[in-house]
Design a binder for these strands. Structure first.
Lengths: 160, 160
DNA sequence: TATATTTGCGTAACCAGTTACGTATAATAG
DNA sequence: CTATTATACGTAACTGGTTACGCAAATATA
């Protein structure tokens, strides 16, 4: 493969990771569209979370997915608009919005699940010849959570 | 690490890759801002390409980076606005816009390079305990370029 | 040479995230 | 009990991508 990003090694690695992530994202959306599924790729984990925990707030979800709360607000608003999520205000804390899956969601989940399972199988077979990938990804996640990319880079600059 | 995305294994892997990619991207932007650099993370590779090839078109760049051409147009327009890129129409093909680095770019490149090198060092030390990561990433890129995520998932669905 | 096809690239509309800011409610401190 | 601080979350403005569409220039074809 003639690939500029690979040629420049470490300098291109961030972009390769982004490129992979984007490819999967857009291909998944394309898949949903082709199969006539009325959902977005990033709704997947929200469905799974709300199924598991029954009722959550925006803050709960954003912590669980390690994502900013405005990102969650946007996703949830779209899911609400499509009728997949219901919300009511918490009686004990009027700031909180309790989110749960709608009837429509519960009805559709078995269908969605087949597609999500097929997707997970794809991920699994992409990794077939990459037996260390997941463990090493975890290692990288760990390191970056201990000290951010920015902090590390600042230190590398000062060392010279 | 208590992480929902890790718990659900293959179903969460795509999002973990995206999360890593995003963390690096936003942390890099934060770094540039802190260091007073007037550039964006995704300009990096364009600088390197234009330095290497001297003069390129939008189409050249988008092929080289495996990115859609509208994405390149947006990046290049911002770089032009900041005075980092000059363009002139190709005399032999009026559709083409020949892009090259400006004087300002050539002057700043040595400064930028120090920061990019520090970033590459960070990437390198994030990978310190992940000796197979790059090779296995390459393997995954290869597989996904042979058959897209969508096609693979369609096949997995039909198999049942 | 006239017509059809391909190529280059600009724009619009969309999705996915971020940071920064504001406001209302809840919790805490004096 | 009042004043301060913290929390929940909504919104705006931004970056970073995509697909879809359109037009003009170049190339191929008849």
């Amino acid at each position: 493969m003639n690939d500029f990003l690979s040629e420049i090694e470490f300098a291109g690695l961030n972009s390769r990771i982004k490129r992979l992530s984007d490819e999967i994202l857009y291909s998944t959306r394309d898949y949903y569209k082709t199969m006539g599924l009325d959902i977005e790729p990033n709704w997947h984990l929200i469905f799974l979370l709300l199924e598991k925990y029954d009722s959550m707030t925006i803050t709960d979800i954003s912590k669980e997915l390690r994502m900013s709360h405005p990102a969650c607000v946007k996703i949830i608003n779209k899911m609400k608009k499509k009728g997949y999520v219901n919300s009511r205000t918490d009686d004990n804390d009027l700031r909180k919005q309790l989110l749960e899956l709608s009837e429509k969601s519960l009805k559709q989940l078995p269908v969605f699940r087949e597609h999500w399972n097929a997707g997970a199988k794809t991920t699994e077979d992409l990794m077939e010849n990459s037996p260390h990938f997941i463990d090493e990804l975890k290692e990288i996640e760990l390191r970056i959570s201990e000290k951010s990319y920015k902090e590390r880079t600042l230190k590398h600059l000062n060392l010279k």
